[in-house]
Simulated assay, not measured.
Amino acid sequence: MAVSLHLAQQADADALLSRSALAALTGMLLDQQVPMEKAFAGPLTIAQRMGAEDLDARVIAGYDPEAFAELLSAKPAVHRYPGSMAKRVQQLCQYLVEHYDGDAAAVWREVPSGAELLRRLVELPGFGKQKSQIFLALLGKQFGVRPDGWREAAGLYGEEGSRRSVADITDPESLVQVRAYKQQAKQAAKAEKAAGPSK
Rank of each mutant, 00 (worst) to 15 (best):
M1G: 12
M1K: 08
A2E: 14
A2C: 01
S4Q: 14
L7T: 01
A8Q: 10
D12P: 14
L16C: 04
L16F: 06
L16N: 05
L17Y: 02
L17F: 03
S20Y: 02
A21G: 13
L22T: 07
L22R: 10
L22Q: 12
A23P: 10
A24V: 05
L25W: 04
G27N: 05
M28L: 10
L30M: 13
Q32V: 06
P35Y: 03
M36H: 00
F40Q: 02
F40I: 01
A41I: 11
G42I: 04
G42W: 03
G42M: 07
P43F: 12
L44H: 07
L44G: 06
T45D: 09
A47W: 13
R49F: 07
M50H: 03
E53W: 10
D54M: 09
D56C: 14
V59Q: 15
V59C: 11
V59G: 03
P65D: 06
A67R: 13
F68M: 07
A69S: 14
L72K: 04
K75A: 15
P76C: 07
P76D: 11
P76R: 10
A77H: 01
V78S: 10
H79C: 08
H79G: 08
H79L: 08
H79S: 09
Y81G: 03
G83C: 02
G83F: 03
G83Y: 06
M85D: 02
K87P: 00
R88A: 14
V89G: 02
Q90D: 02
Q90R: 10
Q91C: 02
Q94M: 13
Y95L: 05
Y95T: 12
L96F: 01
L96G: 01
L96Q: 01
Y100V: 00
G102S: 06
D103I: 05
D103S: 03
A104G: 07
A105W: 00
A106R: 10
A106Y: 00
V107S: 05
R109M: 08
R109H: 14
R109L: 13
E110A: 12
P112C: 04
A115M: 05
A115S: 14
R120H: 07
L121T: 06
L121R: 01
E123S: 15
G126P: 05
I134E: 11
F135C: 05
L136I: 00
A137R: 01
L139Q: 11
L139A: 08
K141F: 07
K141M: 08
K141E: 10
K141T: 02
Q142I: 00
F143E: 08
R151S: 13
E152H: 05
E152R: 07
A153F: 07
Y157V: 01
E159Q: 15
E160Y: 00
G161F: 03
G161R: 01
S162H: 09
R163D: 11
R163C: 09
R164L: 15
R164K: 13
S165Y: 02
S165M: 04
V166L: 15
A167G: 08
A167I: 00
D168F: 04
I169D: 09
D171H: 12
L175V: 13
L175W: 15
R179W: 04
K182R: 15
Q183P: 06
Q187A: 12
A188C: 00
A189G: 06
A191H: 12
E192H: 11
A194D: 13
G196M: 04
P197F: 10
P197E: 15
P197Y: 09
K199L: 13
K199A: 15
K199P: 15
